[in-house]
């Protein structure tokens, strides 16, 4: 009996009508699409993007070549060589990050005792030829110089939660 009732009910196409009404309702809803290059989604201050090496306000680079970041990096993306500078301080002569190896875990930033290596919130970058995926010390410092304000601001915002 219930079988027959169900059969007759299915002939009214009621279920399909309900489904169609639902999709029709969504047709008129506000769209969620973010029109990317013009609109962007908000980013957390903890966003881990492109790396940068920072300097102190007096222009001295922060990095003291302790190599903690190199040691902690799970992807072995960081390569550091160090030497004694003329003034007797220990500095890096080579500081490279292979962005293809990097998994953007942020451990380098966490491990750094002087807040030198940081991850900025830049995520729109590309490489135009082979080998450009390895960021040199100069490039990293340049990124740091260019975005220092931004970096300082996000670190400040995040500081109270750490």
């Amino acid at each position: 009996m219930t079988k027959i009732v169900r059969y007759l009910k299915s002939l009214t196409l009621n279920e399909i009508r309900k489904g169609l009404m639902l999709t029709q309702k969504y047709f008129f809803k506000r769209k969620f699409t973010v029109r990317y290059p013009e609109e962007k989604t908000p980013k957390s201050p903890r966003f881990r993007g492109l790396h940068a090496l920072r300097r102190y306000p007096n222009g001295e680079e922060r990095c003291i070549a302790c190599k903690l970041c190199e040691a902690v990096c799970p992807a072995a993306a960081i390569t550091i060589d160090s030497d004694v500078r003329e003034d007797g301080s220990r500095r890096t002569t080579k500081y490279e990050i292979d962005l293809f190896k990097c998994i953007y875990c942020g451990f380098c930033e966490e491990s750094c005792p002087v807040d030198s290596i940081v991850e900025t919130d830049i995520h729109e970058y590309h490489f135009e030829s082979m080998g450009k995926n390895v960021m040199t010390k100069e490039q990293l410092l340049a990124v740091g110089d260019m975005y220092e304000e931004q970096i300082a601001k996000t670190k400040q915002e995040d500081a109270k939660y750490r």
Binding site: T23, Q24, Y26, F27, F28, K29, R30, K31, F32, T33, R35
Partner: peptide, 10 residues
């Protein structure tokens, strides 16, 4: 367009 609108996209 129609299918996108029903998926709440553009």
């Amino acid at each position: 367009k129609v299918i996108a609108f029903m998926h709440v996209r553009m």
